[in-house]
Design a protein around this nucleic acid. Sequence first.
DNA 1: CCAAGCCTTTTACACGCGTCAAGTCTAGGC
DNA 2: GCCTAGACTTGACGCGTGTAAAAGGCTTGG
Lengths: 345, 345
Amino acid sequence: MPKPKIHTMEELSAAIGVSRPTLSRYFQDPTKVSRSSVERIRTGLDRVDYTPNFFATRMNRKTTGMIGVIIPYLNDLFFTRLLESIERAAMAAGYTVISQCSHSDPEIEARAAETFLSMNVDGAIVAPLGNHSDLHVYERLNARMPFVLFDSRPKLLTGVDFVGTDHKQSTSMMVDYLCRVGSPPVFLAMPRVNFNAVERENAYIARMIERDLEPVVIGTEMTAPGAYFESHGLAVMSDHFARGALLDSTVLCVNDRVAIGALRAAAQHGLEPGALRRGGLRIAGHDDYPLCPFTSPPLTTVAQDVDAIGQAAVDRLQEKLRAENQTGNQIVKLMDGVMKIRSSA
Amino acid sequence: MPKPKIHTMEELSAAIGVSRPTLSRYFQDPTKVSRSSVERIRTGLDRVDYTPNFFATRMNRKTTGMIGVIIPYLNDLFFTRLLESIERAAMAAGYTVISQCSHSDPEIEARAAETFLSMNVDGAIVAPLGNHSDLHVYERLNARMPFVLFDSRPKLLTGVDFVGTDHKQSTSMMVDYLCRVGSPPVFLAMPRVNFNAVERENAYIARMIERDLEPVVIGTEMTAPGAYFESHGLAVMSDHFARGALLDSTVLCVNDRVAIGALRAAAQHGLEPGALRRGGLRIAGHDDYPLCPFTSPPLTTVAQDVDAIGQAAVDRLQEKLRAENQTGNQIVKLMDGVMKIRSSA
DNA sequence: CCAAGCCTTTTACACGCGTCAAGTCTAGGC
DNA sequence: GCCTAGACTTGACGCGTGTAAAAGGCTTGG
């Protein structure tokens, strides 16, 4: 009952009576082979068990049809959403995506990059680790293949394409909203190892100054080695609440995960963010983490356009693939955030 | 300044004056080459930019050093934690892992399996999709290479190795705990498309009967097409609470994501699960989703031993790789769950 | 100085398929 | 019936590396 296994195209050609080069052309593009041959090959393939060798097929082609993606964490729904959107866009464009996670480790990130190089992927899309990233790795990839950074970008890196969110816009929008509806926000930040976190912090400060308000930033110190974002938010806010500080303030968190920790701290201290319409404690986040609608209270935040970012990254890669030799200028594409007003602020 | 690029081993051997076969052996295992040659190759490699071709190196080896992993969702922290633990275990064992996500689509899952076959991966570890999975895909992989299912297993599939949690144990333990500390639990289930969900539901029913209690299962009907787990939990419990039902009951949820939805429903109705020590509404979950400590109130749940599962899956794969020809018996490895008592129940 | 032994190099073939050039076959038009 | 174009086949080479066999160089011991 099991179909006979065939290992090489040579055997296949003997088995179904079509020449090997014709088979080769068929597998690459069936339309390049005559109708009658297509039929014969189709029915032949139904009768046997053959899978073209992945390595042999890619070795001699100029294009491998693969793109490599690196994300820094796997335990963060925001990055997995980004990865998902990239995978969808790439799949739709006919690519095979090889995804790797750097697990917060520059060495693993570098290894993943080397893997991409040795596999001759057609292009790479990577989200940097943060301050610990080895910029040399990005430069190396950028020099060798179409390359796009997404999500965040190292300050010191120049000439590399980038797709992400306009944090100046998104953060300003949130600051404006919070000021309009209540007291000016304090900014609950993070240790400055994350580029986006710094960008948002700076955007907050700039916007506050523009509005003639005094920016207040808390939580930049490390609360615990390797602490999750949530525990950082929880630790910082618990600390303040316990001292009777910020009890009726507006807290803009650097991201939703930190905000979830802040919400927990509030609940622990019997506070209900957003309960009073225009006063009392309010907490807001950034990113629109998938769980935001289900927190207590649901978290007001600003959504990043994840799908647009993924699509744009893949689009840009294809653009560079087609242009190949032309030294196109660096392109930086920033998407606008969108307010998601729920009840926490 | 940039090092000269070298594309083939041939060029490399000419550039540093060592024969190509010696280089080949060096890259596979430096100890198989004499001290002096190692030195020469090392210093030579420092002066040039060479990366062995991934495809060419794998084509002729009996073993590719790669293992394939498939998970059904990327937007679920539980699966990403499992993937992470598998990646760590595999990396430690010297493998390159190729991970694919089936995005809830049997076709994508099948395509990923074909990719693994064409890449001659040394083994595959996959978490099934659920009722929609094409069992034929698993049988095909199982026949061709060391293969292990993890997380959940199709009822109808036999003879395939499995590593996961003992849901009978974990669910019974939770039922016992809930009964000991308060009223017997109702079970908030899911549409029966997920094997683990069904296993837990059955384990709940069995345990309740063993205790001479009447099992009550709710939420098996689909609440909305493609609804997230959280919205399912929210919809089902909101519905009950709005009717004044289950207001002071104990609710054991099929998993934490559903429980998070249930918590939200409770909050919407002004209910505070676990507030009364031995009475009133209580909500518990399953899995120990990473956010459980940060929900309001923190969710009582039973943790799966994610690290042990990942390690066991990789171990089993290596075992089968070594045994190769021996037709080892099927192995099913079930890990115990661990109670995580927080304040929601 | 010669023989034994390890390490290396040389030489050769293999892997599975892409690709090209030249030859063969078929169908269509005259 | 012949001619031409198109589709196919045959044959050959190449990709970058693994791998095995044979031959060469070096050290070591006598």
